[in-house]
Design a protein around this nucleic acid. Structure first.
Length: 289
DNA sequence: CCCCAGTCCTGCGGGC
DNA sequence: TGCCCGCAGGACTGGG
């Protein structure tokens, strides 16, 4: 489930393609439904062939490959998509190949087991429209505590649900939302408009801490093993998860209560009923590792 | 505008 | 052992 740390790891893993020239592109359709590619392969190929890659960036949970004509290729992994420069987990789920010249890597791959991901090519105006501030909130690693509260603080939604809203804040997904709220000591069901200024500061601090720590460990590879970096290697942060997918385990913060699982907006949330209070006062300080 | 439920997709694991 | 169903949650859409 690539979220900000996983997508950032993908981005860093393919930085070596900066300076490369695109010599071709091919959709790979086997027995599975093709992933969404816009425009269609032939037009896509014609528009990118001959272009040079001038930058590899990230917007929220998407990798942005900037070309010399200012068009951008957006790689959007969604649930199971991977951006690779080396051996894929298997060849059946390879979805797209971009051929390169003038760099150590001869191909850039998009692999996706479930096929919910997509790849699309945008002109600068389309990019501003599709992924601009009207559609996407500030990056979770760029936003400051005041802006965070301004963007979410008036909402009546539960804090965990609001953190997943990419229009309000870009990059946080289901896994890291649980981790962040545990470190911040805030109950996932607490309404945004009842979160205090101090708590917003703690949430902000926890968010930065958790996301940076996860990037350091190259993201989280869950038990289904889907997420890998650009070299098809597992991440390491799953071993440091405090609550996610740890229902029934002893909370690593208080070491007295056990982790609970609840469902919010049809998605799993994990939290410690002792460390994460619904009030404004904190019961126990769960130290970030 | 705000918010939630439903949709897409494949693989896996639980229940019978 | 084998089959079926539910679940996993990215982003988007439709509707209350």
């Amino acid at each position: 489930m690539p979220e900000l740390p996983e997508v950032e790891t993908m981005r860093r893993g393919i930085l070596q393609v900066v300076g490369a020239r695109i010599t071709g592109l091919e959709s790979l359709v086997g027995t599975y439904k093709p992933i969404s590619i816009k425009p269609k392969t032939a037009v896509f190929r014609r528009r990118v062939t001959g272009q040079t890659i001038v930058d590899v960036g990230r917007v929220g949970k998407r990798v942005v490959v900037k070309l010399s004509n200012d068009d951008v290729i957006i790689l959007e992994p969604r649930m199971t998509g991977l951006v690779l420069v080396a051996d894929p987990p298997n060849v059946e789920h390879l979805r797209l190949r971009i051929d390169l010249a003038g760099c150590p890597v001869k191909q850039l791959w998009f692999w996706d087991r479930r096929g919910l991901g997509s790849v699309y090519l945008l002109r600068p105006k389309e990019f501003a429209l599709r992924l601009g501030p009207d559609r996407l909130g500030p990056d979770a690693l760029q936003v400051d505590p005041v802006a965070l509260q301004e963007r979410l603080g008036s909402s009546r939604r539960e804090i965990k649900v609001a953190l997943l809203d990419q229009r309000a804040l870009a990059g946080v997904g289901n896994l890291y939302a649980s981790e962040i709220l545990h470190v911040a000591g805030v109950h996932p069901r607490k309404r945004c408009d009842r979160v205090s200024r101090k708590q917003w500061q703690r949430i902000h601090q926890a968010m930065e801490g958790v996301l940076l720590e996860a990037i350091e460990h190259e993201g989280s590879t869950l038990s289904d093993g889907t997420y890998r970096n650009a070299l098809n290697q597992s991440g390491g942060y799953q071993n440091l998860h405090r609550v996610y997918d740890r229902e029934g385990d002893l909370c690593p913060g208080c070491e007295s209560a056990s982790i609970r699982r609840i469902v919010q907006c049809q998605r799993s949330t994990f939290y410690c009923p002792h460390c994460q209070t619904r009030g404004t006062r904190r019961k126990v300080v769960g130290k970030p590792r």
